[in-house]
Design a protein around this nucleic acid. Structure first.
Length: 651
DNA sequence: ATACGATTTTTTTTT
DNA sequence: AAAATCGTAT
């Protein structure tokens, strides 16, 4: 039995023991909301609720896994049947079972952002539209537009007139391309990330049997990070909870930082209106940060208007004030951070308790170089993810062809790996194979060779032999050997000439092979691939003690985490708040929430760096102002000792 | 006509 | 750093 009174504070205890019904938990940063959620799941199970009747929706798969493994140690029950993970993860699991109802094959593939860009590019080219003159959005911008439209249910044309005014002349063309994109996805039997949510909702709305099955199944639904859900997700939850009404949502409106993805913190603000009988609980005791850090964060977020009244109380003893550090330029900034890290480590702070946060990935470039130079171990948690790297996608594209022979993107990607095959020839090849009932078999026909230029024939032969090898290996489910086979069939040489860093990419492919060996079939492996971010994520909750690296992370990726020491680099106007983000409606408030999330990651020490000079793109140096989020906390009538932060001078 | 290498532009955040 | 574009070689 768990001694709840001993392990939880009274606020948390109320949440854990709350009866069913709709419940809103407003949980400030560092108030132990994960702990409360974890213990509630344990408590529900102790009360006799079947794990398979609980749904735990989290923001990352990792968060779900670490919570569930914690629950397992608390109650010693196998939670294999509990549904936990991201919305996309759970949605995908449900859609696999019912894809047929919506007119998809069960073997549909999930395409990631890059695939989706490729497909959009094909559509744009089909209409002969030119993107060079700037009147038509490039694929990645177009993807953002379409995605925002699907996630907010705002018409595409309104998104363009309100946020992408420069493309308003091209609205008709954009709508044409968007429509074509939708049709193509259907034809190719693929879904993008947004389709997973939209189709999931459609499934629940249009098929009452399915809706009843799941809403009766899920007796208790618990949702973490509710402030970052969008209307589609909120509606899915409403339907799923429609039968038992046991919906507990946990979140902090001050930490809503995903509006670019359609997240709408109106969801959390209006939850009590939607569920008038909802009980509201607040977690306001902060165990994480020193009073000085909390004071700074509270003062900062006060500059935002719309929010729930809450007051974070510090319980920790007095510490040191956050430090504002103006530095000459990015190089000095990198130098300062690296130097300070060494000093802190000398004082006994574990390297793994130090993090550097920034608004955008490229803000960390100079620092990375400096850390390498000084031999400080670090880990980057932003930028390109493991499964998005070119070599990983190349190898998995071969597998995708076998699992879904109509995967246009995979075919084209693979074909272009061979000598003398570029965009045009790859397109011809796709046209040829896709017009046959058995695309893979068609690739082995003599006729096939006729549709490619002579120069490309040797490449085609190599492709055929590789494909044969993989097909054999997948028949016997020898998944771990596939990557090696591709590598040995010539891909190693390709990597060598194209990238040069063969050793590290080969190492990645070994990891991929190892990872794939845990799956029963190629289908299963590929199914979840697009929804995962790293192979290390899988075991990371075991390896959490590996506190030997400084973490470099975007603020977004740092959500929910904590470190003893946090450096925030590039605290300048234009960087945080990011100039681009300020142009969005509500941009400043959202950026301030980001700043708030960053500051509340720190337990003991917090440093804000502000480079005074920014080297512009074409060699021009520009003076930069300190971030308004810091300046606004330092009115000129305050004496230095009254400020919520210290200021250091660096030589 | 097409592939490919050099050059220029652009780079927010992510499931 | 990566993608889009441009110019040249095949």
């Amino acid at each position: 039995m768990i001694d709840y009174e001993k392990e939880l504070n009274p606020e948390q205890l109320d949440v854990v023991r709350a009866q069913g019904g709709p419940i809103l938990v407003i949980a400030g940063a560092g108030s132990g909301k994960t702990r409360a959620l974890t213990y509630r799941v344990a408590h529900l199970i102790e009360q006799g609720i079947e794990p398979s009747h609980i749904l735990l929706a989290t923001f990352t798969n990792k968060a779900a896994r670490s919570m569930l493994s914690r629950v397992e140690t608390l109650v010693d029950v196998d939670l294999g049947r509990l549904w936990g993970g991201t919305f996309h993860h759970v949605g995908n699991r449900i859609l696999r079972r019912h894809a047929g109802l919506l007119g998809y094959e069960r073997s549909y593939s999930i395409i990631d952002a890059e695939d989706s860009n490729q497909l959009l590019n094909t559509c744009i080219k089909e209409f002969g539209i030119r993107t060079a003159d700037g009147n038509f959005p490039r694929p990645n911008v177009l993807r953002d537009i379409i995605s925002l439209s699907s996630n907010t249910r705002i018409k595409t044309e309104d998104i363009i007139t309100n946020r992408y005014r420069s493309f308003s002349h091209s609205i008709t063309d954009i709508l044409k391309v968007a429509l074509r994109y939708g049709i193509k996805k259907r034809e190719r039997n693929v879904m993008d990330f947004d389709d997973i949510l939209i189709n999931w909702l459609e499934l629940l709305k249009d098929f009452p049997d399915v809706r009843d099955e799941y809403s009766e199944k899920f007796r208790h639904i618990l949702v973490d990070e509710y402030q970052d859900t969008n209307i589609i997700q909120a509606e899915i939850l409403d339907i799923l909870a429609g039968h038992h009404k046991n919906l507990m949502v946990v979140g902090d409106d001050s930490q809503s930082i995903y509006s670019f993805r359609g997240a709408n913190f109106a969801n959390i603000v209006s939850f009590p209106e939607k569920y008038p009988d909802a009980k509201i609980y607040k977690l306001e005791t902060n165990y994480r940060s020193t009073p000085e850090i909390l004071h700074f964060a509270n003062m900062s977020i006060e500059n935002n208007s719309m929010q729930f009244q809450k007051e974070l109380r510090a319980v920790r003893r007095k510490g040191v004030r956050p430090v504002f550090v103006p530095v000459r330029n990015v190089l000095q900034q990198a130098d300062f951070v690296a130097q300070r890290i060494i000093e802190l480590v000398d004082k006994g702070i574990p390297v793994g308790e130090i993090a550097v946060l920034y608004r955008a990935h490229y803000h960390s470039m100079e620092l990375q170089m400096e850390l390498v130079r000084r031999g400080i171990p670090f880990e980057i948690r932003s930028g390109i993810r493991f499964f998005e790297q070119a070599h990983i996608k190349d190898v998995t594209a071969f597998m995708r062809i076998i699992v879904n022979p109509l995967d246009e993107i995979a075919w084209k990607r693979v074909m272009r790996l061979y000598d003398k095959i570029g965009e045009v020839t790859a397109g011809k090849i796709w046209n040829f194979v896709s017009s046959h009932d058995e695309p893979v078999a068609a690739a082995f026909s003599d006729e096939f060779l006729k549709c490619v230029p002579k120069a490309a024939v040797p490449g085609i032969r190599r492709f055929r032999s590789t494909l044969e090898d993989i097909m054999d290996l997948s028949e016997t489910n020898a998944l771990a050997e596939i990557a090696g086979a591709i590598l040995n069939d010539g891909y190693r040489e390709y990597v060598e000439t194209r990238y040069g860093d063969t050793a590290s990419r080969e190492e990645d492919l070994k990891q991929l092979a190892h990872f794939s060996s845990e799956f029963n079939s190629l289908d299963e492996f590929l199914n979840d691939l697009a929804l995962m971010t790293s192979v290390t994520e899988e075991e990371s909750y075991k390896a959490d003690d590996d506190n030997s690296k400084v973490v470099l992370s975007s603020i977004h990726q740092a959500k929910g985490l904590e470190w003893s020491v946090v450096f925030m680099i590039w605290c300048s106007e234009g960087m945080i708040p990011l100039a681009r983000a300020l142009r969005e409606p509500g941009g400043e408030d959202e950026e301030r929430r980001l700043f708030y999330v960053a500051t509340t990651r720190a337990k003991d020490h917090l440093y804000f760096c502000h480079p005074l000079i920014n080297r512009g793109g074409s060699g021009w140096d520009r003076d930069t102002a300190p971030s308004r989020f810091i300046a606004e906390l330092a009115p000129s009538d305050l004496e230095p000792e009254e400020l919520p932060f210290d200021q250091w001078l660096v030589q």
